[in-house]
Amino acid sequence: MSEIISNPQNGSEVDETPDELLIEQSKNGSMDSFEELVRRHKDKIYARAFSMMRNEDGALELSQLAWIRAWQKLDQFKGDSSFTTWLTRITINLCLDEIRKRKRFSAESIDELDESGGVERKIPVMEFNPTSGMERTELRQRVDEALAQLSEVHRTVIVLHEFEGMEYKEVAEAMGCSIGTVMSRLFYARRRLATLLSGFRREYSA
């Protein structure tokens, strides 16, 4: 049974039925329950798709497709992880499929050649001193802008490792590459971020 209560802040009705119950009801064919799940978690799913694709239309389309896939596969959800974690993985897989379709995984830049290990085997040492007096809001914005400037593979590896908390092995499975490639991509992505944010640091201190 859905539990509808009134929101004291804006007077709107809030459904406080737990996710687990909504999922069970959805498994039994209740589209209303599934719609409530969509309402609750659509921002998170959209945000994940956007952080990977960096494109509003693409993120909307892929996040909606993720919900459709979730409806189709709902019987497979056994509750081992949270519903949003499960749904986020579906979204990530769809985004990775889309990126693969664009064939941008194959040597999209010099960075790609470098990270394959074939060109650059020697790594120069850099000094990086982060968070020197940055406000968190501004810092978040700058990091987000820097992420937007990374290549798709570099951004993906940062999103999966840093934001999704995946281990190297999990990232490798998701991206369909070796652990060594993941480590290499992660290193170059971080180095690129460090360079981009060093520019900010100079600008900020000036």
């Binding site: 921002d43 945000a47 982060p130 968190r136 810092l139 987000d144 840093e162 971020l193």
Partner: peptide, 10 residues
């Protein structure tokens, strides 16, 4: 730095 910044809410 990335951990402190976190992911922007969208």
């Amino acid at each position: 730095l990335v951990a402190e910044a976190g992911e922007p809410t969208r």
